[in-house]
């Protein structure tokens, strides 16, 4: 594995909302700790792969050197305290170009995007706010909705290969939830919980399999988890983890936090 650190984190804005719910607080605290751990381990660059940055004509890579401004989520535009989310990204453009070239050579349809006002997704912004705090250069790779498990795994093998021998220690952060069954009506944030007990059981089972690196079982149950629990992007995160070699046997996988965000399942997991 050529990424020095891999993280799986949620990306809903509730994580930035002050005192919204103990679960959100625990998840946000764990993400802050993950950022500290990455920094202590010498990480200087983070590549984000967020299931909320979706693309349909292949994969996109952010290539604008600096992106800053105020973000308003299309759904959570009135969330108390986080209706306007400030962001400031320093993008490692050379890194983006290098990844794009490697992906294109491997016959992936790719596009570098460098536009003022390009809508950065909520997930990437939330993750960066909690993890980065001005410490890491960044990259962003889109999630192509038509890339299936096999293609996603192959893509991340290519991306991993392209980062080998890189002088800048780099982390990959997958921004994705687990079960995706939102509450579809307004709830009191203090009463948040996983919206279905069966989703909760499934999430815990998947996390347990992850931590114990039971990749064969994970592969077997992933389709059922995806369909039973409306898993975020079909839990494509598993294919990413396989692609980067997270289960190669030389890594420790730790669950740092687990909880609910507006009915969905969320976890902070580190692979280091």
């Amino acid at each position: 594995m050529s990424f020095h650190y891999v993280g799986l984190v949620p990306g809903l804005p509730h994580l930035l909302a002050p005192r919204s719910h103990p679960d959100s607080t625990a998840l946000a605290t764990a993400m802050g700790r993950m950022g500290d751990e990455m920094h202590a381990a010498g990480i200087r660059r983070v590549l984000y792969f967020s299931t909320q940055w979706i693309s349909v004509l292949g994969h996109m890579l952010q290539a604008r050197p600096r992106m800053h401004g105020m973000h308003v989520d299309e759904n959570w535009h009135d969330l108390q305290g986080v209706d306007n989310i400030a962001y400031d990204f320093v993008i490692d453009t050379e890194f983006a170009i290098r990844l794009e070239q490697a992906m294109a050579q491997a016959d992936f349809s790719t596009k570098l995007v460098d536009y003022e006002g390009f809508p950065i997704d909520t997930g990437t912004i939330v993750a960066d706010r909690l993890l980065n705090r001005g410490r890491f250069k960044t990259g962003m790779l889109s999630c192509c909705v038509y890339s299936d498990a096999a293609e996603t795994e192959r893509l991340f093998k290519v991306v991993t290969e392209a980062t080998k021998g890189d002088a800048v220690p780099t982390a990959l952060v997958i921004v994705s939830g687990l079960s995706g069954r939102y509450f579809t009506t307004e709830i009191d944030p203090r009463e948040d919980h996983i919206s279905s007990p069966s989703d909760d059981t499934w999430n815990r089972r998947m996390l347990d399999l992850l931590v114990r690196q039971q990749v064969t079982t994970l592969d077997q149950v992933q389709p059922e988890f995806a369909s039973q629990c409306k898993a975020d992007m079909g839990f494509k995160a598993l294919s990413v983890l396989k692609g980067v070699g997270a289960f190669a046997g030389d890594r420790t996988i730790r669950q740092l936090a687990y909880g609910a965000i507006y009915g969905t399942g969320a976890a902070v997991v580190s692979i280091f």
Partner: peptide, 19 residues
């Protein structure tokens, strides 16, 4: 994901970039 939303600000302006 939570309900049907309606624009209810008198004036809106900005830059909209298709993702």
């Amino acid at each position: 994901v939570v309900g049907h939303h309606v624009l209810a600000v008198k004036h809106l302006q900005g830059l909209s970039v298709d993702p």
